[in-house]
Amino acid sequence: MKDHDPAPAAQKARPEALSRRAFLWRLAGAGVAAAAVGGIGLSLRDAVGPAAMENARALATLGDFAVPAPIAGKPRLAEVHGTDRAAMFTAGVAALGGMAAFVARGDTVLLKVNAAFAAPAVLGATTSPELLAAVATACREAGASRVLVADNPINNPESCFEVAGLADAARATGARLVLPRPALFSPLSLPHGRLLKDWPVFSGAFAGVTKVITLAPVKDHQRAVASMSLKNLYGLLGGRRNIFHQDINGIIAELGAMLTPTLCVLDGTTVMMTNGPTGGSLSDLRQAGVMYLSADPVATDALGVGLLGKTPADLPYLALAQAAGVGTTDVASLNPVTVNTEPAAG
């Protein structure tokens, strides 16, 4: 018995000799493939090697959405007293020249709320849904074609907007939520900025936006002393932004320089006096019944901090922001007006 039987191979028909034509075809095919590989290789050739960092083109700011200041002597800040946020907002805006002074027909308005935590509205840790609804409605009535609502909260965004009632308020008034997702963030390097260098910001929320209104509650805050209009802008940062707590005043001042809003609404109807900025208990809240409206976030915050029993000197970021030209703590220079939406009792 043989180990190896050559018979089957012998029985097979011998392959035909390669014709010259077929050989040339093979040669041509191999040549084309080799040329293609070589071309691709050369065209992708990277003589330097990778850089240490990928440098995307960075934004300089998120934009200047200010409207021209009213003629000298007209009020540029309104202090409104009351309990009904919708009425207070309406009265405050009326005192500043009406909604038409801020929002024109066809505008796309971005409402920057504070939706930081998945806490019910009653706990006051987030922008009041009634205020959001009132502002969104006013924008619509002033002719805004689109109203967007955005924040990059601390807890997961869907829960924050739903639990805080902001999603319902937006739906009810035809405003669209812009929830943060990675594609909406791009790097920003603030000119002369020390902290905001190549840092991801929520720029995608600003696509097509022509006006920006910030809606912030007044809250106690251990690190920043108080969280109001300026601190609310922290919610436009992405990344592991908490590293900036090492220089909280510096970052808040830079946030003011990063964005110039059209109008800032600082809502002190209910103020979180203790355990901020999360709160968590009704006993952390006080009914202060005040709302400040101004295009100047430094000015609203300089007044708002008083609701917490503190002074502007307790907030170093106000001086820093003022020095950076963000706004003024000299509120009197804005010709403030005071409005009452409810007749004083007694």
């Binding site: 935590f117 806490a119 601390i154 805050h221 251990q222 690190r223 908490n242 707590h245 090492q246 220089d247 909280i248 203790t274 355990n275 900025p277 999360t278 709160g279 968590g280 208990s281 006993s283 952390d284």
Partner: peptide
């Protein structure tokens, strides 16, 4: 911890603690 070990202000943990009182 930054304030304990590195002499840098931070206190984010206290800020986000959702319990009342914290």
């Amino acid at each position: 911890c930054l304030p304990w070990a590195m002499g840098r202000p931070c206190i984010v943990c206290q800020e986000v603690c959702p319990v009342s009182p914290k």
